[in-house]
Design a protein around this nucleic acid. Structure first.
Length: 555
RNA sequence: UGGGGAGUAGUGUAACGGUAGCACGGCAGACUCUGGAUCUGCUUGUAGGGGUUCAAAUCCUCUCUCCCCAGCCA
């Protein structure tokens, strides 16, 4: 069903893996892992990595673990673990093993001891400030720690005492003994363990020393028998350290491969920035429908399929890039055009009185549920003398390219009748309050027996038979395509427009996700609907809108 | 000015010495009971200079530009 470019994806990582398989490396196994830190919510950038890791495993009949990189107790919480599990499942993936770096703490400790005994690690008494001062700069080598040549036995004893809780947080570290003059900062005797008297969401107060990422990550990969450790570009110069630990330890050595992380226009995809948006209240939470988090996209109405499809289309490469938000929108439209049932909803109601239509008559009009899929059938829509149409669908003095209703003009009410505008009623301020129209009874169903054409078809709802609903129109969170460091000042003030008094056709009462004809795709916000005791819909994405474009370009 | 990466249409991504292609966007047109969808066409690209070769996005070389690294974060 999918176009070739993503039904059979290929990229430099898959090519490398295919080569490894061919050469018999790793007994021709493929085992990947998705390794989030439980200190925040997953976003669509993570989805790129999730899809890559899980799909590569599946394509090669391999395994993929979900591993929580939970080595920093002060920033991590069980709440995030749950949210991450839920999001990965929602995206459509099942992990083979659920792992936690914290489950390896004992083993990690033993490996650290091995490094100490081999003279490859030492306990350093320098303070964090002193370590920073002695690290050197990008162009100058660092200085060796005065504790660098401590005897192995002494290091071992000290390390045991660190574990036993005899020292204050931050007072000592265990450092790898590598090369203080390396051009690669990561190799200048990096810290392996730090003292943190903090309780961990899984291990409680069992530990007061915690391994650093560089040590924990490669060893965790190794313990799990990972074959290909895929990560983002900023870890490229950590790879020599990744390799160093595993080589020194002489244990299973996965291959780290780096690829570029995802960026998308008009949003931000860094955990730091997303946290700021949440904490400063610029959005309502991690699951605000404007957020690029998986929970936000889910609440907005995006489907896992659309997101997976998007991840397949953007490709994998080593070049930093920013994908156009229009591609994500294309992916959800593409899916929903085929799958979403159509309904009518009027966002900004303008009343029409059809003067020659019987006052007490309600007709049930047949409407097609999805013109793209006959099997989805038809439904009845009530029609009456008074209906609402969209205010934007009427202009008293229409410009040349405006095809919709205007005084004296005939248009079609979708599936119902042709109507002609005969009068415009205004209030004291000159605001249009109501239109008077006549209808042609011969056009019932929306076709005229004499074959005359109308230039436009409008959606509508019956005034007495429609329901009230709140509709939220979402736009890009940021008004600039690439928000910078002052991203908060670049928030789009119109990213959310709430319309409290919309009118929807009765059948919409029990619909979750659908198209509002001529407007866009919408999704019921279950949380707020029950809170407000009326239907609340989130706009997932607009339909492509040629008229809006004409207006925008002044044409 | 240390180390590590990357430069292909507006954007993203292919082409692995042999016709620079695909997708999104944009622009036109056809069709249409959604100004939707669908269909058709068009536009625009190898960062730059040298070299090797019958042939270079691809190999060599010099230059330029951009990204990452100086957490006891991941």
């Amino acid at each position: 069903m999918l176009p070739n470019n993503h039904s059979n994806p290929s990229d430099f990582i898959r090519e490398t893996i295919a080569d490894d398989l061919k050469s018999g490396k790793n007994e021709s196994r493929v085992h990947t892992r998705f390794p989030p830190e439980p200190n925040g919510y997953l976003h669509i950038g993570h989805a790129k990595s999730i899809c890559l890791n899980f799909e590569i495993a599946r394509e090669n009949k391999g395994l993929c673990n979900l591993r929580f990189d939970d080595t920093n107790p002060v920033t991590e919480e069980a709440e995030y673990v749950e949210a991450i599990r839920k999001d990965v499942e929602w995206l459509g993936f099942q992990w083979d093993n659920e792992c936690y770096a914290s489950d390896y703490f004992e083993q990690l400790y033993d490996y650290a001891v091995r490094l100490i005994k081999n003279g490859k690690a030492y306990v350093c008494d320098l303070s964090p400030e002193e370590v920073r001062e002695q690290r050197g700069t990008l162009t100058e080598p660092g200085k060796e720690s005065p504790y660098r040549n401590r005897p192995a036995d002494e290091n071992f004893l000290l390390f045991e005492r660190m574990r036993a809780g005899e020292f204050a947080s931050g007072s000592r570290t265990l450092r790898a003994k590598i090369d203080m003059s390396s051009g690669n900062m990561n190799m200048r005797d990096p810290v392996i363990y730090r003292i943190q008297h903090a309780s961990h969401h899984r291990t409680g107060d069992k530990w007061c020393i915690y391994p650093m990422y560089d040590f924990a990550h490669c060893v965790s990969d190794s313990i799990e028998g990972i074959t290909h450790s895929l990560c983002s570009l900023e870890f490229e110069d950590h790879r020599p350290l990744y390799d160093w630990f595993l080589d020194e330890l002489g244990i299973h050595h996965p291959q780290q491969i780096e690829f570029a992380r995802l960026n998308i226009t008009n949003t931000v995809l860094s955990k730091r920035k997303l946290i700021k948006l949440v904490e400063e209240g610029h959005v309502t939470g991690w699951d605000d429908p404007r957020m690029p988090t998986l929970s936000g996209l889910r609440r907005r109405g995006y489907t896992p399929e659309a997101i997976r499809n998007f991840c397949g289309r953007i490709g994998i490469a080593k070049r930093n890039s920013t994908v156009d938000m229009a591609l994500l929108e294309y992916c959800i439209r593409e899916e929903l055009n085929k799958a979403a049932p159509r309904y009518m909803a009027v966002l900004n109601p303008l009343k029409i009185v059809i003067e020659n239509y019987p006052a007490d008559l309600i007709e049930e009009i047949d409407a097609v549920n999805n013109p793209e899929d006959e099997k989805m059938g038809i439904r009845k829509v009530p029609f009456s003398r008074e209906v609402y149409i969209e205010r934007d669908d009427f202009m008293e003095d229409p410009p040349k390219k405006f095809f919709r209703l205007a005084p004296g003009r005939e248009v079609r009410l979708r599936y119902a009748y042709y109507i002609t505008c005969t009068d415009v009623i205004k209030d004291g301020n000159g605001e249009i309050t109501e239109l008077r129209c006549t209808y042609d009874p011969a056009t019932k169903g929306g076709d005229s027996p004499d074959g005359r054409k109308v230039k436009s078809t409008l959606h509508w709802v019956s005034a007495p038979k429609s329901l009230e609903a709140e509709v939220r129109l979402y736009d890009h969170l940021f008004s600039v395509s690439e928000p910078g460091d002052d991203f908060v000042s670049q928030l789009n003030p119109d990213s959310l427009i709430t319309l409290a008094s919309c009118r929807i056709e009765p059948a919409l009462e029990k619909i979750f996700r659908c198209q509002f004809e001529r407007l866009g795709y919408f999704c019921l916000d279950k949380i707020d609907s029950s809170l407000k005791n009326k239907p609340v819909f989130n706009r997932i994405v607009t339909l492509k809108d040629a008229w809006a474009k004409i207006q925008k370009t002044g044409g």
